[in-house]
């Protein structure tokens, strides 16, 4: 919007040692053991610091964090409907712009952050998210992606991968692969048509310092930014709680997740493996893919191969040809 009021320069961190010890997403929440989204929340909160306002559209990170009549956020936080995270954030940002301009609020513009799940971002919340990013509000929209409507018991969302067993896509005799559709590509939706956005990035709980730095970079930009953060869900993806970070790493090693930044039209890639492992290595650790046949897995492999080679998305390491299915 019109007047620049944010002058902060959140520091780029080099290594875990420099990560602030202070917690702003404090212990004491009802998220599951080994919860990926909770880990995302913790890291994002460390990145933003206390001069922040967080918006929590309905989802796990609302319900599990605030049950009951308590909350784990040391900064101001507000629940929004699953539909309107971006719009409520827009209203708050607009309010701060005018209150600062009129001298009614003395401080700097706070970091306004929407922490939406995949449903609250690219499904039912898409309109509000796109509206916020289009209008140029100085706010950060974060999509923590646990690849399902987990709060309501693991139903398919547009971020759920092909072949996943969810409670709305159970594999059966007629539909053996469970989910038959391929997921949306959230950062590309943002990059493709939101000229007010100058910074988009993906990050993963597997690389926490990178994640923190991307949040800070996004906040240092004036205007809207979008982050897509990979947050494995032990309960929804059906793996042992201790493997949350391991799974996140494997996603990157198999090309199921790619860490990159898009800054003023330029792509840079992070953590790209020298050679991608077959997706099967990632899938076999998760019971949500247990029912898939080799043919289904080949279909997934072909989708990932095509995505990694997609035009406009050069990658640092050439993708190998069709790989042997182990």
């Amino acid at each position: 919007m019109a007047n620049p009021v944010k002058t902060q320069n959140l520091e780029h961190i080099k290594g875990i040692r420099k990560v602030p010890q202070e917690e702003y997403y404090v212990p004491g929440h009802r998220t599951c053991q080994g919860c990926g989204p909770a880990l995302v929340y913790k890291l994002v909160s460390k990145a933003t610091g206390p001069n922040s306002i967080f918006l929590g559209p309905t989802g796990c990170m609302y319900v599990a964090n605030t049950s009951y009549l308590c909350s784990p956020w040391a900064y101001p936080w507000m629940h929004t409907q699953i539909t309107n995270g971006g719009a409520v954030a827009s209203g708050i940002e607009a309010a701060y712009q005018v209150l600062i301009r009129k001298g009614k609020y003395k401080g700097e513009l706070p970091n306004i952050v929407v922490m939406a799940g995949d449903g609250g971002s690219i499904d039912i919340g898409l309109q509000a998210m796109s509206g916020m990013l289009y209008r140029g509000h100085d706010a950060l929209f974060i999509m923590y992606d646990n690849e399902s409507y987990a709060n309501t018991g693991i139903q398919t969302s547009p971020a759920t991968p092909y072949g996943a067993n969810t409670t709305f896509t159970p594999p059966g005799k007629k539909i053996p692969e469970g989910k038959v559709l391929f997921p949306k590509d959230p950062p590309q939706m943002v990059i493709g048509s939101h000229p007010a956005v100058h910074y988009v990035a993906t990050a993963s709980v597997a690389y926490p310092v990178d994640l923190i730095n991307k949040v800070r970079k996004a906040l240092n930009y004036k205007g809207p930014a979008f982050l897509h953060l990979h947050a494995p869900c032990p309960k929804g993806w059906l793996f042992d709680a201790k493997k949350t970070v391991e799974i996140a790493k494997l996603a990157i090693q198999t090309g199921m997740w790619v860490n990159y930044e898009w800054e003023k039209g330029e792509y840079t890639y992070q953590h790209t493996p020298k050679e991608y492992k077959p997706v099967k290595e990632y899938m076999k650790l998760q019971k949500r893919f247990d029912h898939l046949t080799d043919a289904h897995i080949a279909k997934m492999q072909a989708f990932i191969d095509a995505k990694l080679k997609a035009p406009g998305k050069p990658i640092a390491v050439p993708v190998q040809g069709p790989r042997e299915m182990a």
Partner: peptide, 25 residues
């Protein structure tokens, strides 16, 4: 002297309004 926000629908309009109200405007 006001911020004029073009909502992307009435649902957003009311969301923007109550968000602003929560922030003190």
């Amino acid at each position: 002297d006001a911020e004029f926000v073009h909502g992307e629908g009435e649902h957003a309009q009311v969301s923007i309004a109550y968000g602003a109200s929560a922030a003190g405007a």
